[in-house]
């Protein structure tokens, strides 16, 4: 569960429409229309990447009047199905996927089972990807892949589903010092 206290706002006088913010937004909350960026406040997760990338300092984060909760009721999803999907993806359900929001692999799996069909859906439903965005999306794509859901190519995440479990046995045997076959 993440509570979003801020929202990005764009100063149209400063915005030059270069789309840098649109190309980074993990929530798909920014669209450039008529050369001006517009933020959908209902989707903005206040990750701040838009403000960081903007060279014109056209984006600022302001406090929301009403904080927005990002959450997902995992209990509403059949645990056996979550387990099945995690097994298929070779992931522990309580593997921490997103250190920023504390989202677990099982939560992402539950979100996929209950209808998430894009990375933006995962961001909106679980919070994964709404922080640093660096470590989480590989696992998200792994679960999409295991569920047979194909995500269109997108430069924001490169759609890489590779995890340590995918390393071929011949490679893991070749490099024992990397401990691919680690123990619990």
């Amino acid at each position: 569960m993440k509570v979003v206290h801020f929202v990005s706002v764009v100063d149209p006088r400063k915005c030059n429409g270069d789309r840098l913010c649109e190309g980074l937004c993990p929530a798909g909350a920014i669209k450039v229309v008529e050369k001006k960026a517009r933020v959908d406040a209902t989707r903005c997760v206040a990750c701040g990447k838009c403000a960081d990338v903007c060279r014109e300092e056209a984006v600022t984060l302001i406090r929301r009047d009403d904080p927005m909760a990002i959450g997902f009721n995992v209990a509403a999803v059949d645990p056996a199905k979550v387990q099945e999907l995690c097994m298929k993806a070779s992931l522990l359900p309580d593997l921490l996927v997103c250190a920023c929001t504390g989202t677990l692999a099982g939560e992402v799996a539950a979100a996929v089972i209950s209808g998430a069909r894009s990375p933006e859906d995962i961001v909106a439903r679980t919070g994964a990807g709404s922080g640093c965005g660096i470590y989480c999306m590989g696992v998200v794509f792994k679960l999409f892949q295991a569920a047979g859901i194909r995500i269109p190519e997108d430069p924001r995440w490169n759609n890489l589903p590779l995890t340590a479990a995918d390393v071929p046995e011949v490679v893991s045997e070749k490099y024992p010092a990397y401990y691919f076959r680690g123990r619990i």
Partner: peptide
Amino acid sequence: SAMGFHDTLEKYFKGEIKA
């Protein structure tokens, strides 16, 4: 270390190991 391989996953789901 936690690795998501099938052998360890199966043990995990059976409650034989803790991650």
